[in-house]
């Protein structure tokens, strides 16, 4: 009986097999990518030809350092927050689990732009306020905290704090999915050998989880890079802010925003092809 079923299954499987042929290869060609590269090339041609586009580009380019630094700093902090939060989410400890879930659901329910306003303009000032009061109540012990004023934390740092808190919550979901993608037997095998929960996590579970979610982490990085444009609302001089300033001053909106868009596009295109490459490689190396 089972033998017959197997034969039937084999037959139906072979019926779905499609032999690769020329037409499929042609239809798989990434015309979209050619289109995007053409768009980038045309814009850079306009920039190189001098004139208004050139002026806009050189003005906006000055913000690249801040855009990249903000993204890298926020992403590093978000990775740490995300990892700790994901461990909390899967913890058996009721307090840790609820605290972590509270944080993630709170952040995920609020738009990034609103979070940036809130954390930079409400969160950080009230924190400084609270620390000041704490310093007063501590007397002599509070001396190191007393110098803290609202203007001693620049907007760029606040922007980084806001993005870290936001993407920490997003990344914790990615980490959690990665940890849960590792079969339960791995933890059991490690524990049965006498490894503690933490040791098993660090040496057995997380390396496998991390490999599984590497592409997803890459995509979160790209999202963060794009969302870093929102920090312009705090007057942080990233490329978006500089494009706003330049267009406001010269009324060359087309030049400013086309250059700005293409700048983001070229960076994210390079990053996403890197992500695709690691995705392919990790699928090939799947041990």
């Amino acid at each position: 009986m089972s033998h017959l079923n197997l034969q039937a299954a084999e037959k139906s499987a072979s019926a779905f097999e499609v032999k690769p042929n020329k037409s499929i290869k042609q239809s798989n060609f990434p015309y979209w990518l050619v289109g995007l590269i053409l768009l980038i090339a045309l814009t850079f041609a306009l920039v190189l030809s001098g004139g208004n586009f050139s002026d806009a580009f050189y003005f906006i380019r000055e913000g690249l350092t801040i855009t990249i630094l903000t993204t890298l700093a926020a992403f590093s902090i978000a990775m740490v927050i995300g990892l700790i939060t994901s461990l909390g989410r899967i913890s058996t400890n009721v307090f840790a689990r609820n605290l972590a879930t509270f944080y993630v659901e709170l952040i995920r329910g609020i738009p990034v732009l609103v979070l940036i306003f809130f954390i930079a303009l409400v969160g950080v000032p009230s924190l400084i306020d609270g620390l000041g009061k704490l310093a007063d109540s501590l007397g002599a012990w509070g001396a190191p905290l007393r110098g803290l004023r609202n203007d001693s934390i620049p907007m760029q740092s606040r922007a980084i704090i806001a993005l870290s808190i936001t993407f920490g919550a997003y990344l914790s979901e990615t980490f959690r999915a990665g940890i849960q993608s590792v079969p339960k037997g791995q933890m059991e095998a490690a524990r049965s050998q006498g490894l503690s929960y933490g040791q098993a996590m660090r040496h057995i579970i997380l390396p496998q989880a991390f490999r599984n979610i590497l592409p997803a982490i890459g995509n979160e990085f790209i999202s963060l890079l794009k969302d870093s444009s929102l920090v312009s609302v705090l007057a942080v001089r990233d490329i978006t802010q500089l494009a706003r300033l330049y267009s406001g001053r010269t009324f060359q909106f087309r030049e400013s925003y086309l250059t700005l868009s293409v700048l983001y596009l070229s960076i994210t295109l390079i990053l996403s092809s890197l992500v695709k490459f690691t995705e392919k490689r990790s699928r090939r190396d799947q041990h």
Binding site: P183, G185, Q186, E188, A189, A190, I204, P207, Q208, R211, H287
Partner: peptide
């Protein structure tokens, strides 16, 4: 274990 549970990495 039934499923071996070797560490694949």
């Amino acid at each position: 274990f039934q499923q071996f549970n070797l560490y694949p990495h």
